[in-house]
Design a protein around this nucleic acid. Structure first.
Lengths: 101, 101, 101, 101
DNA sequence: GCAACGAGCTCAAATC
DNA sequence: GATTTGAGCTCGTTGC
């Protein structure tokens, strides 16, 4: 079955060809849609900028002789619950030994 | 061959077992590393927050009856050069017709 | 809460230090684990080989002058339900027009 | 600049509106394209089937009490060069200690 | 050589 | 709760 917008009131609006403000196009609330999309785009720009900043830092780190991959690893590690990590490592260890590694 | 940090000056530092400030651990510039990593983590947090904000907007859009998938599509579209898009669409069209679709 | 194996009988086995066949290591059914993993590895190899074959075909297509990106698109398209595609395209179109694109 | 097929002989074909076999549509070698795409699709199906098989094995493993995540880890590990792994782990360790973890 | 792009993998959410 | 889809991340490749 199609994962679509609900059949009734497809996009916040329905039978309003008799529009009161010119804000509907193709039966949808154009202004509302534009607002939502522009808000996303704004945030996305900031997000991309931060991504670029992060990239710069890694480049700086690399040219200072650090290993970026390992840095990413420790950063990932620090985001996790230590107990979880510990448990996973234990399991991995058990499995490795079970396989004779 | 191993993709590692360059052999000489492994991590911005090398022969400084005779450390001047206790800032090296295992032969690397610990303070410098910590600084870099914390900067990344700081930016990453902001980045994640923006991601959450974006997610919220899509949730809002969804509950207003909009199709999130289609919204994502138009947003992606608007980030691209219209000429590029046009060209790709033309090509896709040609290929589809070549396959009788 | 930890997503771990169930507390009771963690890995198909538990209190069997008194093992009957040397098949448990660290309290888990080593032979069973090895079997499962080797089966996965075998299938994964075949899978990777197919991936390489696909890659080769795209390379061949590219050197014949075809646009790989567009090819990937039509292949993706053909995997989908035409009705779904139609519906999405319609929605995209509506949204684009709502935004004056 | 557009990443397109080379200007000269855009898709294995060019000035052959005077086609010899009805095999060109929109100026491209339709038969050749279809052949390539169908080959990819065939391989892709096999590939997907293998993916399903792998999935099944993991499901079987899970219901036998094994931790799928840890299994994936050891499988990944076994695909890598042990020397590389050793080196990475050493680096990670150094970095962790440098950060007091 | 490195930045940019694209594809594969993993994980989480959303659905049934 | 189990499955399935989608989104984020990481890695390999290609172009500059």
């Amino acid at each position: 079955m199609a994962k679509r917008a609900p059949p009734t009131e497809p996009a916040g609006i329905g039978h309003n060809q008799g529009d009161q403000s010119g804000s509907t196009v193709g039966g949808i609330a154009a202004d509302r849609l534009r607002s939502l999309i522009e808000r996303v785009e704004r945030l996305d720009e900031e997000r991309a900028a931060l991504g670029a900043d992060i990239r710069d830092i890694f480049a700086e780190a690399k040219s200072a002789g650090f290993d970026v991959k390992a840095m990413r690893y420790v950063i990932r590690l620090r985001k996790l619950d230590p107990a979880e990590v510990e448990e996973q490592e234990m399991l991995r260890d058990v499995y490795c030994r079970a396989l004779g590694m």
